[in-house]
């Protein structure tokens, strides 16, 4: 009797493990399928409407009603916006990340406080940055413009950039920093001439990541960058962006305009995929030739 009970228990143990293993494989598959479903559905909807005219012309007759023209305004606008924001964020992020890891190497408390604040800032939704940016704009009497968009997106991506640079700089061996100090170099020389060179591929990955975030975010630019049919020629003009091009034109009842939205979605997806793949390539390179 007891033996049978034991056998039963063993059987149920095995069965439980089996069931859960199947569930695990199912949930892993769900994730892969979800990604494929996203990419394939975007491609199926968007690729037929993608043409040379689509990506080399600005919309004619208004982006919401005009049937002619393409999405060049959104592509160029997005590149301007995220390029500018990435550059500005770099000016703040790189020094801060170096400051945390080299200047404050010994003061763990300060570094942990900065990390905590960065994590808080990273968590804040981009719509809050957008609303704040808009309030600030109204307060300063500015109108929706490329500059306002760039500033808002900069605020939004700084925590992302610093945090990922910090992850890279953390891995620098302490001995390297100490060796540089012992040769008499100042802290800034150590930072910019030794550590920066050592970490360049990792830092480029961090920059690409932030660029990808900047180009894909719609909520922060919704209030601040405006939307227009034209390519901006100065910082004070409003600009179109790819995410908003998808968002606004998808709501139109005219199929030609909707096609523009799907085409923008494809372009955006392709840009993000390129960024993702090249940053992987960079981080692999980083793994290869780093001093340990």
């Amino acid at each position: 009797m007891k033996r049978k009970f034991n056998l039963n228990r063993k059987f149920f143990k095995k069965l439980e493990e089996l069931i859960f293993r199947v569930l695990m494989i199912i949930s892993t598959t769900i994730i892969i399928v979800a990604l494929l479903a996203i990419i394939i559905s975007i491609l199926i909807k968007g690729v037929p409407s993608l043409s040379w005219e689509m990506i080399t012309q600005t919309p004619k007759g208004g982006y919401y009603f005009g049937k002619e023209g393409g999405i060049l305004n959104a592509i160029i606008g997005s590149l301007y916006l995220s390029g500018g924001a990435t550059f500005l964020a770099l000016v703040v992020s790189l020094p801060l990340a170096l400051y945390m890891n080299i200047h404050k190497m010994k003061e763990k408390l300060v570094v942990n406080i900065i990390r905590l604040f960065l994590d808080i800032l990273w968590g804040i939704p981009s719509i809050v940055y957008g609303a704040f940016g808009f309030a600030l704009m109204v307060f300063l009497g500015l109108r929706t413009s490329l500059l306002a968009g760039i500033l808002t997106v900069t605020l939004f991506i700084i925590p992302i950039m610093v945090r990922s640079m910090d992850e890279v700089l953390k891995t620098v061996p302490r001995g390297l920093i100490e060796a540089s100090f012992s040769l008499g170099s100042t802290r800034s020389e150590t930072s910019f001439r030794v550590i920066l060179r050592q970490c360049i591929p990792g830092l480029i990955t961090a920059i690409l990541l932030a660029f990808g975030r900047a180009i894909g975010d719609a909520a922060a630019v919704l209030f601040t960058a405006g939307y227009t049919d034209y390519i901006p020629t100065s910082l004070s003009q409003p600009t179109a962006t790819l995410p908003l091009s998808v968002f606004f034109q998808l709501g139109s009842p005219i199929p030609e305009v909707q096609n523009r939205a799907y085409a923008s979605a494809v372009v955006l997806t392709v840009i993000v995929l390129i960024i993702s793949i090249s940053s992987r390539a960079f981080s692999m390179k980083y793994q290869k030739n780093r001093i340990k």
Binding site: I42, G216, A218, P243, V246, F247, T269, V272
Partner: peptide, 12 residues
Amino acid sequence: ILAGIPSVIYGV
């Protein structure tokens, strides 16, 4: 890649 896809694409 899933983490990098913009939210507007998820919406579409």
